Simulated assay, not measured.
Amino acid sequence: MNNDKPGRFRGRIIIGQIALLLLILGFIEYAVRQGIIGSLYLSEPTRVIKEIILLFTQGELFHNLAVTLQEFLAGYLLAAVAGIGTGLLLVLIPRAETFFGPFLSSLMAVPKVTIIPLLMLWLGIGLSHKIAIVFLFCFFTITYNTITGVKQTAENHLKVSRVFKASKMQTIMKVILPSAAPTIFAGLRVSAATGLVGALFGEMIASKDGLGNLLVKATSLYDTAKAFAIITIVTIVSVLIIVLIDLLEKKVFLKWKSS
């Protein structure tokens, strides 16, 4: 009986969340239809759903979504490899952290928006431009989360590895990375969302394809329903990416950690 209580509570929470969401959407639908809120500022949820269906059926969505995901995945994977590698090196080589730390902090403090026009001059407006933007949006978060996670490795665990005469690589793979993994994955989740925003931002500034370009076209034509449809799709994609990262942590990493 006691085992059923958490499940029932979770079920009630989900039902409550769905009810609240339907209530908000219902209020928006009523407010826009009655003219309380202008259709220029908000769109009826039913119209947004119709626009999502149109985007899928007309084939306009798939090409642009593929472009955005290509830009995001390339920049994100580069940032993940570079960020985790940089974080590990800076902690494992204390003098390197002392020397390069101020430079890294200064670069992170530079507003990314101010660099994007320079990236256009250096890289043009093609794929490499968007990949560089995604990289900048993700790299620093992953790096600093890696540094924090590695520094939180228990000293007792490191002592045990030294007692068993583990090599440097064994210590990193079997002690340091498993200990730092929760913090690293937290950084990967946060940077996944910001990286997708970076890809869209780059497309909105200068691009002929991608979801960001679609969004700019919709807003320039004051097509509020289509704009909200694209925003909804981007939100769903972002959630799915975070779910995939969670699955990677649970199904792959935890098995590797336990082994």
Rank of each mutant, 00 (worst) to 15 (best):
S238K: 03
L211H: 04
P111Y: 15
I53S: 08
P182I: 07
K5R: 11
K130I: 00
V113N: 06
T86E: 03
F185Q: 01
T46W: 14
T171E: 09
K255P: 07
D209L: 07
V163H: 14
D246Y: 13
I133H: 00
T148N: 08
H63D: 11
C138S: 12
L127I: 08
L211I: 09
L215I: 14
L88K: 07
I236S: 08
E203Q: 05
M120Q: 10
M108G: 00
Q152D: 15
I131S: 01
S259C: 11
L118P: 01
V150M: 01
A66G: 10
E60V: 07
I14F: 15
V163F: 13
V237L: 05
V113A: 12
I14M: 13
P182D: 10
P182V: 07
L177S: 00
G210T: 03
A166M: 15
P178R: 01
T235M: 13
V81L: 11
F201M: 12
N2D: 09
S207L: 00
A227T: 03
F139Y: 12
T146Q: 00
I236V: 15
G210W: 01
V91F: 06
T232L: 08
G187P: 00
G35Q: 08
S128Y: 06
P178A: 05
I18H: 10
Q17H: 14
L89V: 07
I205E: 04
A229M: 03
R162T: 10
L158S: 10
K217S: 12
F99M: 14
L89M: 14
L22E: 10
I236W: 11
S220Q: 14
K5Q: 12
L158D: 09
Y30P: 05
I233R: 00
S207Y: 06
A218F: 10
F9D: 11
H63M: 10
I233P: 01
K168A: 14
G187R: 01
E97T: 04
Y30S: 08
L23T: 15
K251S: 12
I236G: 03
T235C: 14
R10S: 15
I172F: 12
T146K: 02
M1F: 12
V81P: 03
I172Q: 07
N2S: 10
Y222S: 13
F139W: 01
V110A: 07
L244G: 08
